[in-house]
């Protein structure tokens, strides 16, 4: 299950479209880091609306994606965590503390634009 990555201006948008295996998540991590370098992107949005479960492996991989992308000087936003998924994550002990999250794609884009403006 490959995750499509769209390029919109300086932002990459990865939209997860179904439940992902661990191997799929690692593939997404590699693809995003490569494309941030290739396109000199300033921001990345990972849309997890379609993710059925966010367990410890998925959370760890998203944290790694965000940290790797931050080292490139770009920002990552996770959007679309479903309410029941958020409920389970908190019970499990996962808070994704140092990654910005937003309600949906639109809010995620707004967050990145605001961040870009505050830098320029």
């Amino acid at each position: 299950m490959q995750v499509p990555i769209l390029k919109q201006g300086g932002v990459l948008i990865a939209t997860i479209q179904a439940a992902l295996s661990d191997a799929d998540l690692l593939e997404l991590r590699t693809a995003l880091v490569q494309q941030v370098v290739r396109y000199r992107s300033s921001g990345v949005i990972v849309d997890v609306t379609a993710m059925d479960v966010m367990d410890s492996f998925a959370s760890r991989t998203l944290l790694e994606i965000s940290h790797m992308i931050r080292l490139r000087g770009a920002a990552t936003v996770i959007v679309g965590i479903q309410p029941e998924v958020a409920f389970a994550m908190v019970q499990l002990g996962l808070t994704l503390e140092d990654i910005p999250t937003a309600l949906d794609l639109e809010e995620g884009l707004a967050y990145l634009q605001q961040k870009a403006r505050s830098i320029n």
Binding site: V53, E84, Q91
Partner: peptide
């Protein structure tokens, strides 16, 4: 919501 908790536990 409960089914998601169960699915998360199974995943782990």
């Amino acid at each position: 919501s409960e089914a998601t908790l169960i699915a998360t536990a199974i995943s782990e």
